[in-house]
């Protein structure tokens, strides 16, 4: 093989879909077809997964540590909820508007976030989410304050599919949106833009020295990720037909970070796997010990940190890698 062909193949291989990925999404589709009893949990997982993928773009690719990612999730949820009151009750339209609005919020706040070091970024992201929470809390005439948004209702999806009480349409809808946006994010990270984001977070000095504007790249990925988080929030608002202050709460920012820590950063699937594990464990524990599940999940997380994800997941990861490599 000529060097040229080798280089072309090598770059192509870095972006090609692997068999394991097809299997992953086939399993997701199967869950919609064959697990009707679990739709509520599965819907939660899909939404949390999209939220975690968004954080992975920020943290795993952009290298920005955020402790306030719920700002975007919650903002998207409120936008989606408020839109129905303004008469925009078609879910997909609402989703689109919520995504665009949250992207704009992400771009606007990136100016604050991208200044300074990791520690400053943690503080600033946290502050932004707390400020939004307080605004939502105070503007009761708009948001309903602590009572939440009352009486939001959606027309059938695309005018065709009504949200049913079992969550069949809801989960199918969330899963479809998750897949489309995941595919978009996956496409983005293997584009020249995506590589330049990775370069910018890995070595900003050299990135500038090859002519790439570091700050603008990070602003771009932060805005895009914010939009994804906003869509995730909007999905929650639409599929649960309810929005409360909880969507902006700190525990959401912390949980999504935990999911990403569990699943691993920088390969996009970490967010999905982390969300799946976190939600399933949470659900099982809540069933086993309704009162103490938070204790157990806390204990599990402490063990996870002490033992290290690498060691705990060495086996499944090795298996995953084996399939990955062989492709």
């Amino acid at each position: 093989m000529t060097p040229r062909a080798r280089a072309a193949a090598s770059l192509r291989a870095a972006s090609r879909w692997r068999p394991a990925e097809y299997a992953f999404w086939a399993a997701a589709l199967a869950s919609w077809l064959f697990l009707p009893g679990q739709y509520l949990l599965l819907n939660e997982i899909a939404i949390a997964g999209l939220f975690a993928v968004s954080l992975d773009l920020v943290l795993g690719y952009g290298g920005i540590v955020s402790l306030g990612h719920a700002a975007f999730f919650g903002f998207g949820a409120y936008v989606a909820g408020l839109l129905t009151m303004a008469g925009v009750a078609e879910p997909l339209t609402g989703l689109l508007i919520a995504g665009v609005a949250t992207t704009l919020l992400g771009l606007a706040t990136s100016v604050l976030v991208l200044r300074g070091s990791d520690l400053t970024r943690i503080m600033v992201t946290l502050s932004v989410s707390l400020v939004l929470l307080e605004i939502a809390n105070r503007m009761t005439w708009l948001t309903g304050g602590a009572d939440g948004l009352q009486g939001i209702a959606f027309t059938p999806l695309l005018g065709l599919f009504e949200f049913d009480m079992f969550g069949r349409v809801a989960y199918g809808y969330s899963l479809a949106v998750l897949f489309v946006l995941f595919a978009l994010a996956r496409r983005l990270v293997v584009s020249p833009f995506g590589w330049s984001v990775r370069a910018a977070s890995g070595n900003p000095l050299r990135t500038a020295a090859i002519g790439i504007p570091v700050t603008r790249r990070l602003v771009g990925v932060y805005g895009f990720a914010a939009g994804l988080a906003g869509v995730a929030g909007a999905l929650l608002a639409q599929t649960s037909q309810f929005v409360s202050l909880d969507v902006l709460a700190f525990h959401r920012s912390a949980e999504v970070l935990l999911m990403l820590v569990i699943g691993g950063t920088g390969y996009l699937y970490g967010g999905l796997i982390g969300a799946l594990l976190f939600k399933v464990v949470q659900d099982r524990l809540a069933e086993l010990t309704p009162q103490y599940w938070q204790f157990w999940i806390g204990l599990l997380l402490v063990l996870l940190v002490l033992a290290g994800r690498e060691r705990l997941f060495a086996l499944p990861r090795a298996a995953w890698r084996a399939v990955w490599r062989r492709a």
């Binding site: 192509r12 972006s15 983005l188 020249p192 090859i210």
Partner: peptide, 21 residues
């Protein structure tokens, strides 16, 4: 790394849809 620098020189570094190379 080199592919990224070349992409930049050719003005392709803001492409989001096509993969690098």
């Amino acid at each position: 790394s080199v592919g990224l620098a070349v992409s930049r020189r050719l003005g392709l570094d803001t492409q989001v849809w096509r993969r690098i190379g």
